[in-house]
Design a binder for these strands. Structure first.
Length: 731
DNA sequence: ACTACATGGATTTTT
DNA sequence: TCCATGTAGT
């Protein structure tokens, strides 16, 4: 029986799809049809192997990936509107906890804290412990606590492994934090998975229950899993061993978020008899792009190794563009976009990637000035806007008033005259009684202890929450929101606190109402808890429109999983990319930076442009930047160097080019201007005139050591330094 | 209790 | 430069 599910698959893809069971590692190179293989495999398991829909646990890292997979599987199966267990790790665990939360000390109405909530809670704890923010930065505590949790450390274990004595305060914060989470009936992101792991480890009955529920376990982006996710997957597949993981070690770029590359590197050792399938045929990029990416990544040592190939032709060479400063760089990128436009490339097929967000601004400004539509990925997310967070916090409280984080956020918004002093008293009182803030409030109301201006406000607040809680069922979700808006006169509060942005914020609130209505309409059992779970685990970047006609700006991290005809990677400069801090502060820094470059390159279908500026104004000062070392790792034969395309500009105009540039010729490509020798006089756009003192390396790695007039020594890669020979001109 | 200024720090951020 | 955060003033 040849299933139509196997049509249009290449042999290794087919083998991966039809692998019967047992551990399977699919090493999926960039652009090798990974999603296709996963979705076809799930469909194949269900249709050809007779698996129940609900028996395939398929975990991803992003909602977007999960949604796409889920849709495609449903399409393959010819069904729709089915809720398959294809979702993010967090979402799958949240679902398991909807029934099992009471077994880990929470209720079914638990709350999910996002990172902002988490930071709020930590700040609060710091305050109540009397720690000063200068010596004990909340962000640092948050980071350490999350790191510890990702390593499955309890506060005690964290304390035992603490290396720096001066960090001991974090232990206290961690202990308090865990306690307060419990009191608030809340999970943070990591807890969602961690709690399930602890549950499965602690209860044979639950382990058996979930193991038999999920007969196959699939993991996407396996190179990004951390210890907790690894344990979860191992536990769930422990009984039957039907574990299929898909990943690419060369695209692991989240180690700083706890991802452990060893999970994928040692999969074979870890799972006896594991089958390994490599997907190496690339269906996305040209030969030249693939050649560049492969050559770059070959410098890494922590690899399973794979050889990407394509049936496509070489295509055009990658194009390196050097500019004198960031203004010139932006100008060149704009020219390039204009040129692409005339070539017929749709704007939505052009992307600008940068290593750090700080680089995006100048491109935004230039694009806006030139009336080129653009959009930025990963800005402030919808559900992180202040007004939305405020209202969600109200909803959180209605669902679960024990949630102290939400309570503190909301108790004086809009202003009710409940200040810091009153609040501190309340926190202290709750602490003394050993109950949540909400419980303390209720008890105090009951005992008639709340008097005075603040007391009245607090009593009214308690009544209001109770009132809302009672009316949820009659009002419906959008109705509840309206009621909250009305009762708090929130719009007036917005107008008062920030008149300029009020209109936009009101619009956002209307959108929130829309989203509530949509949620309610979309399902038979729409609950407030269900909606809040979705909100907590969803970023609104998930719903961007890929067809919108605009240039895409994003960090290299955001680019993972996307593809464009034309990719421009800007800021290819030494301290920025590879990022000096990343290299210094993380053990595997340089290799991870290189993987990031690899990810960027492999996003491109047709053309890649790499740009760098000799000097850049950043953080309030002008820095002089050498071209990225990664540029030297690209084989010379696939790299073209654009010369100065506009005589008379681009060089010594620190203020940028005055006025609008008329459309100009495409970046001209030309090779280097012959080899330079020691002793020759040269001129350079940014550095001025100088003398070559020495030569290092050879071929594409040939570097020139130059002393520029009155300045220190500079080492430049000859192949793209854009030097001009002076001696000859002067004679 | 809220607002206005100073200070210091500035990768990346799937959930 | 720009932003978040902390403190001093009203």
């Amino acid at each position: 029986m040849t299933s139509d599910l196997l049509e249009n698959l290449n042999p290794p893809q087919r083998e991966a799809v039809t692998h019967p069971g047992g551990p399977l590692l699919i090493i999926a190179g960039a652009g090798s049809g990974k999603t296709r293989v996963i979705t076809h495999r799930i469909a194949w398991l269900i249709r050809e192997q007779g698996l129940r829909h609900s028996a395939v646990f398929a975990a991803t890292f992003t909602n977007k990936a999960a949604e796409e997979m889920s849709h495609r599987v449903q399409r393959l199966l010819g069904v729709s509107g089915v809720s398959l267990p294809i979702a993010t790790f967090h979402s799958l665990c949240a679902r398991m906890l909807r029934t099992d939360a009471p077994l880990v000390g929470r209720t079914e109405r638990y709350t999910i804290l996002d990172e902002a909530d988490q930071r709020g809670l930590i700040k609060d704890i710091l305050k109540s412990l009397g720690l000063r923010a200068e010596e004990c930065p909340p962000a640092y505590a948050q980071w350490r606590i999350n790191q510890a949790k990702m390593k499955m450390q309890t506060p005690d274990e964290f304390e035992a492994t603490l290396e720096r004595a001066e960090d001991h305060w974090v232990v206290d914060v961690f202990r308090q934090y865990e306690r307060r989470l419990g009191e608030s009936d809340a999970f943070d992101f990591e807890d969602l998975i961690l709690s399930v792991v602890r549950l499965l480890e602690g209860s044979g009955e639950r382990l058996h229950h979930w193991q038999s529920r999920f007969e196959h376990v699939l993991v996407d982006e396996y190179q990004d899993t951390n210890l907790v996710q690894y344990r979860l997957v191992k536990l769930l597949s422990g009984a039957h061993g039907n574990l299929c993981v898909v990943g690419d070690e060369d695209q692991s770029i989240y180690s700083w978020r706890g991802a452990d590359l060893d999970n994928i590197l040692s999969f074979q050792r870890d799972h006896e008899g594991a089958k390994v399938i490599r997907l190496e045929q690339n269906y996305r990029s040209t030969g030249n792009i693939l050649g560049a990416a492969s050559a770059v990544i070959a410098h890494n040592t922590e690899r399973l190794g794979k050889t990407l190939w394509t049936e496509a032709g070489d295509g055009e060479p990658l194009c390196l563009i050097g500019a004198a400063n960031e203004h010139a760089e932006a100008e060149r990128v704009l020219e390039l976009i204009e040129h692409e436009r005339r070539r017929g490339t749709p704007l939505r097929e052009i992307a600008i990637f940068y290593r750090v967000n700080a680089l995006s601004r100048i491109f935004e400004e230039r694009l806006a000035a030139a009336d080129v539509p653009y959009r930025i990925f990963g800005g402030v997310r919808f559900f992180e806007r202040r007004e939305i967070k405020d209202l969600i916090a109200h909803l959180d409280l209605v669902e679960n008033p024990e949630n102290s984080v939400a309570l503190l956020r909301v108790i004086n918004v809009p202003r009710r005259g409940v200040g810091e002093k009153t609040l501190r008293g309340l926190v202290k009182e709750a602490d003394r009684r050993g109950v949540s803030l909400w419980q303390a409030l209720r008890q105090m109301v009951h005992e008639g202890k709340l008097r005075g201006k603040a007391g009245n406000a607090l009593r009214a607040f308690v009544d209001q929450i109770d009132d809302w809680r009672e009316s949820v069922s009659t009002l419906g979700l959008p109705g509840l929101l309206d009621r909250i808006l009305e009762d708090t006169d929130y719009a007036a509060h917005l107008r008062k606190s920030d008149p300029l942005s009020a209109a936009g914020r009101v619009e956002n609130i209307e959108e929130l109402g829309q989203s509530l209505a949509e949620y309610e309409q979309g399902r038979a059992t729409a609950t407030l808890g269900g909606y809040l779970e979705r909100v907590a685990l969803t970023t609104a970047t998930d719903d961007y429109d890929p067809d919108e006609e605009c240039v895409n700006l994003m960090t290299l991290h955001c680019a993972k999983g996307l593809e464009f005809d034309v990719v421009v990677i800007v800021g290819m400069e030494e301290p920025i990319f590879p990022n000096r801090r990343a290299v210094e502060e993380q053990g595997r820094g340089l290799e991870e930076e290189r993987r990031l470059f690899y990810v960027g390159l492999t996003r491109a279908r047709k053309r890649v442009f790499l740009t760098h500026a000799m000097t850049r104004f950043l953080h309030g000062q002008t820095q002089r930047n050498l071209p990225s070392a990664f540029l030297g790792e690209i084989p010379r034969e696939v790299l073209a160097v654009a010369g100065r395309s506009q005589p008379g500009w681009g060089g010594r105009h620190p203020q940028g080019v005055p006025g609008r540039q008329k459309s100009v010729a495409p970046p001209r490509r030309r090779g280097t201007m012959g080899m330079f020798r020691t002793g020759e006089r040269v001129s350079h756009d940014a550095f001025g005139e100088g003398t070559i003192l020495g030569v290092k390396g050879e071929g594409s790695m040939r570097r020139l050591v130059i002393r520029f007039e009155g300045k220190e020594l500079v080492e430049l890669l000859e192949s793209y330094a854009q030097l001009e020979r002076l001696d000859r001109e002067e004679t």
